[in-house]
Design a protein around this nucleic acid. Structure first.
Lengths: 107, 107
DNA sequence: CGTTGAGTTTGACGGATGTCGAATCCGATG
DNA sequence: CATCGGATTCGACATCCGTCAAACTCAACG
């Protein structure tokens, strides 16, 4: 991002990723899922942490899923969610490049 | 984020930061400003890269400013913008922690 | 001190978004 | 196969958000 401005087309998909993170409920959802790094969390566990209804939580999970930040798998009656490390890492690196201080001069 | 879930109050301010990044125009604006790491960019330069009108760009710059991601300073007739590395770095690290793979087991 | 140019603020409008209740789907269990 | 519980989808509604035109602010310049 610091070496070359984000292209007009890239900006669209990136903005969509960040939009998925731009809601307090979704941020906490992702946080709760990420806190079980490697493991999984079922929706029923997540619901306890929120006051919003199940349809709302389900909606937010879908947004995170559509953005590619988490994946969900159904087993028996329950659906388990997991984070997608690569997706979060990509966003992290983008911001890291932007945060480059003048001190860290490129070669 | 991976060690401890984001608190309910933190989620609000963090979501606001990500919301600032959740628009293609703002993402490109930040990118163009970040591309001049350490230096400054005046609004007039930025305007050339977009089809939207000056008020719209000004609005987006305000959103980025209110989120603490950039700072603006008026000198003579022009306003110059700069990135705030610490703010971007903080968000970057948050996502980096979330992206931790099972491989990278903490001590 | 009127004018010009850079940038922001205001007001309005259309589209997107978060939320809920009701309905639906899908496995499991009796 | 009827029922139940977990989870998603649908439909509706209020609010938020991106966008522009018009009006305004501020500094430089004649």
């Amino acid at each position: 991002m610091v070496t070359e401005p984000v292209s007009e087309s890239d900006a669209g998909v990136l903005a969509q990723s960040f939009k998925a993170l731009s809601d307090p409920v979704r941020l906490r959802l992702l946080s709760l899922i990420a806190a079980r790094a490697g493991q999984e969390v079922c929706v029923c566990d997540l619901l306890d942490a929120f006051t919003q209804t199940a349809p709302t939580i389900s909606h937010h999970l879908k947004v995170l899923r559509d953005a590619g930040l988490i994946t969900g798998e159904r087993r028996a009656s329950w659906v388990y969610y997991r984070v997608v490390p690569a997706a979060l890492s990509a966003l992290s690196q983008l911001l890291d490049a932007s945060a480059m201080t003048p001190r860290q001069t490129p070669a």
